[in-house]
Amino acid sequence: MNITAADRLLFVGDSITDAGRDRADIASLGDGYVREIARSLRTAAGPTVINRGVNGNRVYDLEARWSADVVEHRPTVVTVKIGINDTWRRYDRGLLSPVDEFEACLDRLLARTRDELGARLVVITPFLLPVTPEQETWYEDLAPRTEAVLRVARAHDARTVRADLALPRAAEETGPAALAPDGVHPGPRGSRLIADAWLTAVAPGTRN
């Protein structure tokens, strides 16, 4: 994908995208993978980068705010990172997000984005780095959800960033807690890995 200074890159998702951004500051990118991507791209093409991640979001929350947080910004490239909370809420709150409904909702969002904006699409797969035995059981829900994300990405010709492969592979050497202390939220090393995976999939040649 050719990223230029004229592009507007918008990232939307849950806390992994949010990463502590200042909601009152449109330029705030947080301390996660979005900031790392922006740092790499600014040394190369220099596009506008917008972070619209919100802590705790599931896919249905994205749909509720899609007009204000995505469409109104008129991005040329939209990256979506969603899914882990749709799984997590099943286990900590008993709040279900059936995979077929999750998939249909994500499909609507990507279809709308392409139809209304003509934006190029990028999807980052959800991932988990279990640090407790309980988290190992989450794969029962997360594995089919990840497959749903991949199906939707293929259906809309979206670039796919396989965070579900890159982070567990790295964790074999470092241990999961070194990348995501709670198994879900990446620290600096985990964020950099996601950024590098995005750059490799979307903008090869711009990795620092």
Rank of each mutant, 00 (worst) to 15 (best):
residue 4 T to D: 13
residue 4 T to K: 11
residue 7 D to V: 02
residue 9 L to P: 00
residue 11 F to K: 00
residue 12 V to W: 00
residue 12 V to S: 04
residue 14 D to A: 04
residue 18 D to Y: 04
residue 19 A to P: 08
residue 21 R to Y: 01
residue 23 R to T: 11
residue 24 A to E: 13
residue 27 A to K: 12
residue 28 S to W: 09
residue 28 S to D: 13
residue 31 D to I: 14
residue 31 D to P: 03
residue 35 R to L: 15
residue 36 E to H: 13
residue 36 E to V: 13
residue 37 I to Q: 03
residue 41 L to Q: 04
residue 41 L to E: 05
residue 45 A to H: 12
residue 46 G to L: 11
residue 46 G to H: 10
residue 47 P to R: 05
residue 47 P to I: 08
residue 47 P to M: 07
residue 48 T to E: 13
residue 50 I to D: 03
residue 53 G to W: 03
residue 53 G to Y: 05
residue 59 V to A: 04
residue 60 Y to D: 09
residue 61 D to C: 08
residue 61 D to R: 05
residue 62 L to D: 04
residue 62 L to G: 00
residue 64 A to V: 00
residue 65 R to V: 02
residue 67 S to T: 09
residue 67 S to Y: 07
residue 68 A to P: 00
residue 69 D to M: 07
residue 70 V to I: 11
residue 71 V to E: 10
residue 72 E to F: 09
residue 72 E to R: 13
residue 74 R to T: 11
residue 76 T to E: 05
residue 76 T to H: 10
residue 79 T to E: 05
residue 80 V to H: 04
residue 85 N to L: 03
residue 85 N to G: 06
residue 90 R to D: 02
residue 91 Y to I: 06
residue 93 R to E: 09
residue 96 L to I: 09
residue 97 S to G: 02
residue 97 S to L: 08
residue 97 S to F: 03
residue 98 P to H: 08
residue 100 D to Q: 11
residue 100 D to P: 05
residue 101 E to M: 06
residue 104 A to V: 02
residue 108 R to N: 04
residue 110 L to I: 03
residue 111 A to V: 01
residue 112 R to N: 05
residue 114 R to N: 05
residue 116 E to I: 05
residue 118 G to I: 10
residue 118 G to F: 09
residue 122 V to F: 00
residue 122 V to E: 01
residue 122 V to T: 02
residue 125 T to M: 01
residue 126 P to D: 01
residue 127 F to M: 03
residue 129 L to N: 06
residue 129 L to G: 01
residue 130 P to Q: 14
residue 130 P to N: 11
residue 132 T to A: 11
residue 133 P to Y: 11
residue 134 E to L: 14
residue 135 Q to Y: 15
residue 136 E to A: 14
residue 138 W to Y: 15
residue 141 D to A: 15
residue 143 A to E: 11
residue 144 P to K: 01
residue 144 P to C: 08
residue 146 T to G: 07
residue 146 T to K: 02
residue 147 E to Q: 06
residue 147 E to T: 06
residue 148 A to P: 02
residue 151 R to C: 04
residue 155 A to L: 07
residue 157 D to A: 14
residue 159 R to S: 10
residue 161 V to P: 01
residue 162 R to K: 11
residue 162 R to C: 08
residue 164 D to I: 02
residue 165 L to D: 12
residue 166 A to W: 00
residue 167 L to D: 00
residue 169 R to C: 01
residue 169 R to K: 14
residue 170 A to S: 10
residue 172 E to D: 10
residue 173 E to C: 06
residue 173 E to I: 05
residue 174 T to C: 04
residue 175 G to H: 10
residue 176 P to A: 02
residue 177 A to D: 11
residue 180 A to Y: 01
residue 182 D to R: 12
residue 184 V to P: 04
residue 187 G to D: 14
residue 187 G to K: 13
residue 190 G to N: 10
residue 190 G to M: 09
residue 191 S to A: 12
residue 193 L to C: 07
residue 193 L to H: 06
residue 194 I to K: 02
residue 195 A to T: 09
residue 197 A to C: 09
residue 199 L to W: 03
residue 200 T to W: 12
residue 200 T to A: 15
residue 201 A to M: 08
residue 201 A to H: 03
residue 206 T to F: 08
residue 206 T to M: 06
residue 206 T to H: 10
residue 208 N to T: 11
residue 208 N to A: 15
